[in-house]
């Protein structure tokens, strides 16, 4: 359940961003981007967020999670394909000479503040 530590870090980071932007108010919405191969579960993030945000400016914030994909690069047909899960073959030409990139991101994309 490392989502708890991730959400702890997220809440601190949101508070810092809001302070730095010099605005005050409650947070209406947060947008996150979580890679499909990151090992971070979106439902666990939501659960941890409900648990940890209650006494903060994020208490009633909506949380929108975009799941970003990984990229499969094929060394045979030179194609690049976005993928949801790990593959063993290129989805275009079925070659197994592929490399998987990305899909590990864990990003705070934007914060909507109710002023």
């Amino acid at each position: 359940m490392h989502e708890l530590s991730i959400v702890e870090a997220l809440i601190e980071q949101v508070q810092e961003e809001v302070r730095r932007a010099g605005v005050e108010g409650k947070i209406a919405k947060l947008e996150l981007s979580i890679g499909r191969l990151s090992g971070v579960n979106a439902d666990s993030i939501r659960f941890a967020f409900d648990l940890l945000s209650s006494d903060t400016i994020l208490a009633e914030s909506e949380i929108v999670i975009h799941e970003s994909k990984a990229v499969c690069r094929c060394n045979s047909c030179r194609s690049e394909t976005e993928i949801d899960d790990l593959l063993s073959q290129c989805p275009r030409c079925a070659s197994d000479d592929i490399a998987i990139d990305g899909g590990r991101e864990l990003l705070l994309q934007s914060i909507d503040v109710e002023e």
């Binding site: 997220l10 980071q13 605005v23 990003l107 705070l108 914060i111």
Partner: peptide, 14 residues
């Protein structure tokens, strides 16, 4: 107001 952060969530750890 929308703040565009586009930052890693574990920035402090990093």
């Amino acid at each position: 107001m929308k703040i565009v952060a586009a930052k890693r969530i574990l920035k402090m750890n990093d």
